[in-house]
Write a protein that binds this DNA or RNA. Structure first.
Length: 658
RNA sequence: GCCGGCGUAGCUCAGCAGGUAGAGCGGCCGCCUCGUAAGCGGCAGGUCGUCGGUUCGAGUCCGACCGCCGGCUCCA
């Protein structure tokens, strides 16, 4: 029995195994206006098993299965999820337009994706921006023509013949990879036919609001040994407003670009002469960074962490022991020290372990939490470097926790609590949590004992359940050395960033022969839990810059207040105000230049996103006040200086936004 | 690393039938002494990413290198 959920919320029970969705709809006696609007469905299987996806999108050609115990949510073009159908169709329209304009182009794949769709082509010459415009115009014609999408199924042999005639080598490769017994289907609209699983919108004219966004190289099958194809990205929305909103949001993201803001606000610089992926932190950027570190450090100390400082280099032998040379050598920088091989550290673990091992440890001092703002260097491939988000110098807010197996769950709980506290204070309130565990099909590839794994996975899972945190369980996503929790946080404009990670490590305690003396007087093996909250400070600050669009909350702002004397004769009083602020611990500057009007200097402060602007003129000098303007353009009027200083001190201490 | 695009003053960019460099912003100076997002005027600032080639002559054409930007497992 299939349950049909109608767009108006009604539910119908249908039993028509083997029938096509489009035909079934005709027999339901629905309001014809409604029936005409239905373009497909989201299918949820109520019985899992036999490789059936838990959720899939289907079009009107979909055949209800023999075992039709499922729920079909019928979709109109406006329904959430319907975009997966029509974007897929737009990908075909894109390919159709390319084929018309560039008949030699070979088709690869063209799926719908998160915010749009793409199609990969093998073409003799790469597409230019002008080509994109031409292609887009051709697509408009195809949309205008409103060709219906027709599905037909053929035998494997027939499909092979068709694709050989069409000379589509990539499609042939796809055909060959289809598993035995899988239906081979084509979709046809107008003159264009494409091997395709579907689903599709009923016709090319359904969605008129689309835009081609970018063209980029992409390897066939994502494999760098295979041919480089040309990928065209586009997006599409049923409603024009939604397309415009999406394009605006892209512009908004571009405006927040941390590389631009970093330069404009003088937070950091990257110079060709220094080297790619290496960051120069400017004074204002360091203020933000230090404040962040100070906040984080305080919270760590409250929870019993101890800070350490370790070298930037270590002998080859150390990295041999840790296994980094075996598994990570490509990313490590080698240094010659008096004829001996050293490596710049890509991680802090071996050093923290050496600190642990610097004397005999008792169970009484566990859990031992060693933390470090350790700058590590990794030789990231040049092509992946990106502003602060992907660099070669990485300052981790790193810690290694040495604990007994019994303590593992409490330790994890504390880390998770700490992470949410710190991220929450910075305005990250929406998370996606991933629990990565072993692949039950392939247990042999993991280090450590079954007992340790079971225990660690239970600890991680136990904490998430205890705190009632929703999470996704990722089978087989664990590292070979241990299971982990990853936290992705959503920023102010809705993008997700992977930040916190908590990982068990069953390899390093063995390799370094870490031990502690337990109550029984014997040596036992500790667990090592590797964790970082913000991850890399470079990357996190890049994220924060974009999250706040450069307008940092008061406590993080590089300049918290700027004093603005109106004319020459107010500078003296302005300097008094400045000194009072600085004595009170407020980061303040005075902005005065005989070349610049007050308006111009206010504009400067506004562009630098300074939270408080304090205008001083005759009235203020006489009355011992300052006229307060906020960067939100709110005018608070004159305030007694003493009162304002107290307010600022309080707000900074509270880590208030403004 | 690979594919494509790009690389002119601190920033954003113009200049390209190859004849030897320009604007705005910013900086500095002067006038103005100014009440909440740009007052007016002047000056300085460039081995046109680097190296090599073609040419009487190269920012402009060719090649190599360096760097930046977009992308490279969201599977018909």
């Amino acid at each position: 029995m299939a349950i049909f959920k109608l767009p108006d919320g009604r539910r119908l029970e249908v039993h028509k195994p083997g029938a096509r969705l489009g035909d079934v709809l005709k027999e339901l006696g629905l309001d014809p206006r409604l029936a005409k609007r239905i373009i497909g469905a989201r299918v949820r299987s109520s019985s899992t098993g036999q490789g059936r996806a838990p959720e899939q999108y289907v079009d009107l050609y979909y055949r209800l299965p023999e075992d039709d115990s499922l729920e079909l949510e019928l979709l109109t073009p406006e329904s959430p999820g319907a975009e997966w159908l029509y974007r897929h169709s737009l990908a075909h329209v894109l390919a159709q337009a390319v084929k018309r304009l560039f008949p030699k182009a070979k088709l690869a794949i063209g799926p719908p994706i998160e915010d749009g769709f793409y199609y990969d082509f093998d073409v003799p010459r790469p597409f230019t921006p002008e080509d994109l415009q031409k292609i887009e115009r051709e697509m408009k014609k195809i949309v205008e023509a409103n060709y219906p999408f027709e599905r037909f199924e053929v035998s494997r042999e027939e499909a092979r013949k068709m694709l050989e005639e069409a000379d589509e080598p990539y499609k042939l490769e796809i055909l060959d990879e289809l598993t035995e017994g899988e239906t081979v289907s084509f979709y046809k609209d107008g003159e264009f036919v494409d091997l395709c699983r579907g689903p599709h919108a009923p016709s090319t004219g359904l969605v008129k609001h689309f835009k081609l966004l970018d063209v980029a190289g992409a390897y066939w099958r994502g494999d760098e040994r295979r041919p480089m194809l040309q990928r065209i990205y586009g997006t599409a929305f049923y409603r024009k407003d939604d397309l415009e909103r999406f394009l605006k949001q892209r512009e908004e993201a571009a405006k927040r670009d941390h590389r631009r803001l970093g330069r404009e606000l003088e937070l950091f610089a990257m110079e060709d002469a220094v080297g790619p992926g290496l960051v120069l932190w400017l004074p204002k950027g360091v203020v933000v960074r230090r404040e962040l570190e100070r906040f984080e450090m305080e919270e760590h100390l409250k929870r019993g962490y101890q800070f350490v400082v370790t070298p930037h280099l270590g002998k080859a032998q150390l990295w041999e022991t840790s296994g980094h040379l075996a598994y990570y050598r490509e990313n490590m920088f080698k240094v010659d020290v008096e004829g001996q091989e050293y490596f710049v550290k890509p991680m802090n673990c071996p050093f923290h372990i050496m600190i642990y091992k610097s004397r005999t440890r008792s169970y009484r001092e566990l859990p031992l939490k060693l933390a470090e703002y350790g700058t590590v260097y990794r030789n990231e491939r040049s092509g992946v470097l990106h502003g602060l988000l992907r660099v070669r110098m990485i300052t981790q807010d790193d810690a290694h926790i040495f604990c007994t197996p019994d303590q593992a769950e409490d330790v994890v709980a504390e880390v998770v609590e700490l992470a949410f506290y710190l991220l929450g204070a910075l305005g990250f309130r929406d998370y996606e949590i991933y629990l990565s565990v072993r692949d039950p099909q392939n247990l042999s590839k993991y280090a450590g004992t079954d007992e340790d794994w079971a225990r660690a996975e239970a600890a991680l899972e136990g904490v998430l359940n205890e705190k009632e945190l929703p999470y996704k369980r990722m089978e087989g996503e664990a590292q070979f050395y241990g299971p982990k929790i990853d936290v992705h946080a959503r920023d102010a404009i809705g993008r997700l960033w992977q930040l916190t990670t908590v990982q068990f490590d069953f390899v390093l305690p063995e390799r370094f022969d870490c031990t502690y003396i337990a109550e029984d007087g014997r040596e036992h093996r500790p667990y090592i839990i590797h964790r970082a909250i913000f991850g890399s400070l470079e990357r996190f600050l890049g994220i924060l810059i974009e999250h706040y669009a450069g307008a940092f909350p008061l406590w993080l702002a590089p300049v918290q207040a700027v004093v603005l004397p109106i004319a020459d004769r107010h500078v003296e009083y302005g300097l008094n105000v400045l000194n009072r602020l600085r004595e009170a611990g407020v980061r303040a500057e005075l902005s005065y230049s005989p070349h610049k009007t007050l308006s111009a200097r206010i504009r400067d402060a506004q562009l630098k996103k300074v939270p408080y602007m304090l205008v001083v003129g005759d009235r203020e000098a006489k009355e011992g006040t300052v006229a307060v303007r906020l960067r939100t353009e709110e005018d608070l009027g004159p305030r007694p200086l003493d009162e304002l200083i107290e307010t600022l001190k309080r707000k900074i201490a509270e880590r208030a936004e403004l």
